[in-house]
Amino acid sequence: MAAATRAIASQGLGAPTAVIAKEAGVSNGSLFVYFDTKAALLNELYVALKTEMATTSLVGLPSGGEPREQMLHVWTQWMRWAMASPEKRRALAQLLVSDDITAASHQAVNTAFGAMADLLERSRANGPMQDAPLSFVLTLTNAIAETTIDTVIREPADAETLTRVAFDAVWRIIAGI
């Protein structure tokens, strides 16, 4: 999985399985012992990376806290994961637009993001996004997060300020506060 992450991050979804196998230190044929197809590898990698991102974002979540405090924690952890894992982030960005990612893989990710989705629902309950489809709110939030991460990569000295400003914007969009 690490080899696939590196190959996809550097070469995109068109990275040949031979490159992935070589990076992993196995023969190309051996790769297909573990994955029936390249699409199966991409799906497994997608689920693994998204699950890791969700799990990392929830580590240390203050239980029983106010939704804003909890959302800020998740946001901050998400930013930290992305900054600490640039190859994973680049590979995941490629996988997010892949037609090979199946409905089953998306469903597995939705399950991993269940606690985050519940928190987002509580956060937007009385806000301007309360009637918008959850998928739209998640896509909008993700777009702001990606923009923030890209900017922080270019301007690391301002990382803390930019992360906080972006969160405040997301919170106003979601909760209206």
Results as ranks from 00 to 15, higher is better:
Ser105Gln: 06
Ala132Ser: 13
Ala125Asp: 00
Gly127Thr: 02
Asn126Ser: 14
Val109Asn: 07
Ala145Arg: 14
Glu160Phe: 04
Ile144Pro: 00
Asp118Leu: 11
Met116His: 06
Asp158Ala: 12
Leu162Ser: 03
Ile149Met: 06
Thr163His: 02
Thr141Ile: 03
Thr139Asn: 12
His106Glu: 14
Ala115Met: 11
Leu138Gln: 13
Asn126Met: 08
Asn142Asp: 09
Arg122Leu: 12
Val165Lys: 12
Phe167Ile: 06
Thr111Tyr: 11
Asn110Glu: 13
Val170Tyr: 02
Ala166Asp: 02
Ala157Ile: 07
Gln130Arg: 15
Ala132Pro: 02
Ile144Leu: 15
Asp118Phe: 09
Val137Lys: 01
Leu138Phe: 06
Ala175Lys: 00
Ala175Gly: 01
Asn126Ala: 13
Thr161Lys: 12
Thr139Pro: 00
Leu119Phe: 05
Glu155His: 14
Phe113Trp: 14
Asn142Leu: 06
Asp118Tyr: 05
Gly127Tyr: 02
Arg122Gly: 03
Glu146Thr: 14
Thr139Gln: 12
Pro128Arg: 09
His106Val: 10
Arg164Met: 11
Met129Asn: 03
Asn142Pro: 00
Ala104Ile: 06
Thr111Pro: 02
Ala159Ile: 01
Asp168Glu: 15
Thr139Leu: 09
Leu140Asn: 05
Ile153Asp: 10
Glu155Cys: 10
Glu146Cys: 10
Met129Arg: 13
Leu140Tyr: 09
Leu120Trp: 02
Thr163Tyr: 02
Glu155Ile: 12
Thr148Phe: 08
Arg154Tyr: 03
Ile153Lys: 11
Asp168Ser: 15
Glu146Ala: 14
Val152Tyr: 08
Ala104Glu: 15
Ala132Lys: 10
Phe136Cys: 02
Phe136Trp: 05
Pro128Met: 07
Val109Ala: 08
Ala145Trp: 09
Ile149Tyr: 09
Val170Asp: 06
Met116Lys: 05
Asp131Gln: 09
Arg164Ala: 14
Phe113His: 08
Ala104Pro: 01
Ala108Gln: 15
Trp171Thr: 00
Ile149Lys: 00
Arg124Val: 01
Gln130Phe: 01
Trp171Phe: 13
His106Asp: 14
Glu121His: 04
Ser105Trp: 05
Pro156Glu: 08
Val165Asp: 14
His106Phe: 10
Asn142Glu: 07
Ala108Ser: 15
His106Gln: 13
Arg164Trp: 04
Ala159Met: 07
Ile149Gly: 02
Ala175Asn: 13
Pro133Ile: 11
Asn110Pro: 01
Gln107Arg: 14
Arg154Val: 05
Ala166Val: 03
Ile174Trp: 00
Ser135Gly: 04
Leu119Lys: 06
Ser135Gln: 11
Asn126Phe: 07
Ala145Cys: 10
Val137His: 04
Pro133Cys: 08
Val137Trp: 01
